[in-house]
Design a protein around this nucleic acid. Structure first.
Length: 424
RNA sequence: GGCGGGUUGCCCGAGCGGCCAAUGGGAGGGGACUGUAAAUCCCCCGGCUCUGCCUUCGAAGGUUCAAAUCCUUCACCCGCCA
């Protein structure tokens, strides 16, 4: 038995593990299946790592299935031990509930909630856990869990070896299992998706459903994104790449994608792009034939940035990138293009008539170096540029003559770190 | 509860009274090469009003001309014995 959706996911490298494959294929082939993915509020925003799973959700919806986006208002209060070797610090209820709202808003960008046929719905596990008493929980849910099995779960056993785990985090798998049970009961949800680190938690849910309701459901996990150089996907020296425009500017977001290694671009495109197979094959071919053109990276950056920040925003940052990294003279850019491009960068303003600060002071003020010492080091190491021209000497101070269109200066550190100065 | 070991810069980890802003590795940054890629090679990598000064070696006190290094107390971690 084959199924177009599953075959496609497999082609894209998005399948890690599933429960009984034939029966899953049968259900997916028979009609729309209700499925869910949970997102715990562990930060103010989702990040590009979450995007992998979110987009799989979108693929399921496009294939006609019914998504439930579950926000972990309850589980976020407890903390998932999966993939961590240390206990989490608990966040306050008000913090978590604020993050829940942010995550809801972000999820809503990727799913269709208004579809007449198969609209997505939101859920929050706080709804069925908040009012439950500890005694009810222990008697009705806890009774079905064998501690022996719970201890055997990777997420727990690895923690037992590395410094221990609190009762709170130990209970996490029970809470997540309970979620699946509730969604099974309330909405007839029969499939849970998640990152491959979630396998244990998902299966715990299936066990619970079998024991309590005698029912059965499916599990499907998605491989965790890895980079070819072994570093973590979605992280830079500056931290995570967030979906929130305040936390990671659309410009920085676009830059993250356009800087993708050749070695990774194929996997990324398959995971993040919604282009059809033949178009993807063509793009991947360009990587082999003319890697220098970086067409695949450009398309990847464009598609993901549009998806997350909208096509308007994407066009702006794309134009900015083109202008700032283009071969032409900055002076030749018209003022609208230039000022639009610069608006995407960290910015320092100085008042007209005031004396210009040194390059070092300006770049330090822009925040793209950590300290003035670091800024001086850059100059000493020959990585300091003003308007794309190298400057020499740490006392270098721009003058009126350097202003582009009488208003702007472009500071650059190294190859690609830019900031703008505007004289008002 | 008893005995012993540990806590060093973003991470790992040397140092065990002055030569220590502190060896080495990783991460990170700059340069060269190239393609806003990777690999490679070279350099840098606490801060500042920068030939000097200031703040760092779990915390607080103390000894000393001088402490990351010695002493005391406290906190946390890790072994062994109860």
């Amino acid at each position: 038995m084959t199924n177009e959706l599953i075959a496609d996911l497999e082609w894209r490298g998005l399948l890690a593990q599933t429960t009984d494959r034939d029966s899953l294929l049968k259900d997916l082939g028979t009609g729309p299946v209700k499925f869910y993915i949970g997102f715990d509020p562990t930060a103010p925003s989702l990040h590009v790592g979450n995007l992998v799973v979110i987009l799989v959700m979108r693929r399921f919806q496009l294939a006609g299935h019914l998504p439930i986006a579950l926000v972990g208002g309850a589980t976020g209060l407890v903390g998932d031990p999966s993939g961590r070797n240390e206990e989490r610090t608990l966040n306050t209820e008000s913090t978590v509930s604020k993050w829940v709202e942010n995550i809801r808003e972000q999820l809503s960008r990727f799913l269709d909630f208004d579809s007449a046929v198969n609209p997505a719905v939101m859920a929050n596990n706080l709804d069925w856990t908040k009012s439950m008493s500890a005694l009810e929980f222990l008697r009705d849910i806890g009774k079905h869990f064998s501690v022996n099995q719970m201890l055997a779960k990777d997420s727990v056993s690895s923690r037992l070896e590395s410094g221990g785990i609190s009762y709170t985090e130990f209970s996490y798998q029970v809470l997540q299992a309970f979620d699946y049970l509730e969604l099974f009961r309330r909405q007839n949800c029969r499939l849970q998706l998640g990152g491959s680190d979630q396998w244990g938690n998902i299966v715990a849910g299936l066990d619970l459903i079998r024991k309590v309701e005698g029912g059965s459901g499916h599990a499907l996990t998605i491989p965790l994104m890895a980079k070819s150089d072994g570093t973590k996907f979605g992280k830079t020296a500056g931290g995570s790449i967030w979906l929130d425009a305040e936390m990671t500017s659309p410009y920085a977001f676009y830059q993250y994608w356009i800087n993708t290694d050749d070695a990774d671009v194929e996997r990324y495109l398959k995971v993040f792009s919604f282009k059809d197979h033949s178009e993807l094959e063509r793009l991947l071919d360009t990587v082999k034939v003319n890697p220098g053109a970086r067409e695949a990276q450009r398309e990847l950056a464009r598609e993901v940035t549009s998806l997350v920040h909208g096509t308007d925003q994407c066009e702006k940052v794309e134009a900015a990138s083109k202008a700032l990294f283009g071969q032409g003279e900055l002076k030749d850019l018209d003022i609208e293009t230039l000022s639009a491009a610069l608006s995407q960068l960290p910015k320092v303003t100085i008042n007209r008539g005031e004396e210009f600060p040194t390059w070092v002071d300006l770049i330090a003020a822009s925040g793209i170096v950590d300290s003035k010492s670091a800024a001086r080091r850059i100059v000493k190491e020959n990585g300091a540029y003003l308007n794309n021209e190298k400057i020499a000497g740490e006392n270098f101070t721009p003058t009126e003559q350097n202003l582009i269109h009488g208003r702007f200066l472009i500071l650059r550190k190294g190859k690609r770190d830019l900031a703008s100065v505007e004289v008002l």
